[in-house]
Design a protein around this nucleic acid. Structure first.
Lengths: 205, 205
DNA sequence: CAGCCGACTGACCGGGCGGTCAATTGAGAT
DNA sequence: ATCTCAATTGACCGCCCGGTCAGTCGGCTG
């Protein structure tokens, strides 16, 4: 049948694509963008170098594809978790927890996400405007939660944009501590620490 | 006199060194380590490429020297400010303010500091153990402030190491927003925002 | 079985840049 | 004026790696 015929080709294509993307994520995570080579990625994926270029335009394109795929999955998961949280406090906690859980399962991805994200604000020549949008999307999600909370009097008034960015980066920082120190510990402790820090600050009353 | 003779040579040496370090900082800040070239740095410093190698062993060595110089100056300034602060609350505020003021005056340096710092926790092949120490030193400073505050009952108990790291990264994040968006605005507003966030959290009460 | 076609291969190319070093310069010393 | 030598120069070298493409392979079709 037509469907099966098409699907057969697609399955192979998707298999190769996944294979290469996984290899890319691993090598990029290990070496960083500049020190990773296409040869290493191809070898890990079990294909020849030329094959990589049948599936991706360039090294940068491959990197961005690996990043994009991960970011989209992350955002989908976070958004889904937010929907199930009733209160503003629960939403904030869900936002933190969802990110911790996702990245605990995708450590290689966290590495490239973390460093790439750090490059963004420098606005260097290697600026990736297409990713500004992906990140903005999440920041906006958090801003909405904050704005609602302030509206309902559950949060102290503050600059929503500024605060959202602070919380966002705070979570990244805590994630780095948790993920990058091959710490197999459950993520529940850091999740609670971060939430408590954000919600209550460090001062007494 | 001997002093003058020696000093004459030293003055030239120091002049060239400074010249090259400033140029390096600017180019590295603009392009990042990999995309910066020694030729660009030499041109900006007004010397030939070979001259750079009379003063620094390698590209990496030059980069580290530029970074180290800035970090040492920063740390000296922060430590000095901390001494003048009587209470734990004042010390925390001084810690934040000193960093904002230093980096406002050294924007090129902030760029390389920021990105280099982001690479550290990834522990990639390009790990720079010598810098772990420089950073640790500051984290320890902050930990001492926190430990004292808890001791005196001015802070809620918490994991000192973990919290110090969170605050440290929070400041970096806020600095990035302030410095990297050619925002000429006075640093006082973000300083207060960060302090308030750290001290009180976002929740009501 | 023959012939076709698209997926895959990997030797090769070219450019870019870190690093070198023989040649040059010029400021004192004699 | 001439010598000396340290500081400086910039043409040059060689490596590395992203990207290419002529050739191979294997499965499907008639």
């Amino acid at each position: 049948m037509a469907v099966a015929g098409k699907s057969k080709k697609d399955v192979l294509l998707e298999f190769r694509t996944t294979e290469i993307l996984d290899a890319a994520r691993h090598v990029f995570a290990e070496k960083g963008f500049n020190d990773a080579t296409i040869d290493q990625i191809a070898a890990l994926a079990g294909v020849a170098k030329g094959t990589v270029y049948l599936y991706f335009e360039s090294k940068r394109d491959l990197f961005l594809a690996a990043l994009r795929e991960g970011v989209l999955a992350l955002h989908a998961e976070v958004a889904a978790q937010l929907l199930t949280a009733p209160t503003c406090e629960a939403k904030l906690r869900a936002f933190i927890a969802a990110r911790f859980h996702y990245f605990s399962r995708n450590r290689d991805f966290f590495r490239i996400y973390y460093t790439e994200f750090s490059h963004l604000p420098t606005g260097a020549a290697n600026a990736r405007p297409e990713f500004k949008d992906l990140y903005e999307e999440q920041a906006t999600l958090l801003e909405t939660v904050l704005a609602d909370g302030i509206q309902l009097g559950q949060l102290r008034p503050c600059s929503v944009a500024r605060t959202a960015r602070l919380i966002y980066d705070l979570i990244r920082s805590a994630l780095a501590q948790h993920i990058l120190t091959d710490d197999p510990e459950s993520p529940d402790l850091p999740i609670n620490s971060v939430f408590d820090f954000v919600w209550n600050g460090i001062g007494t009353k």
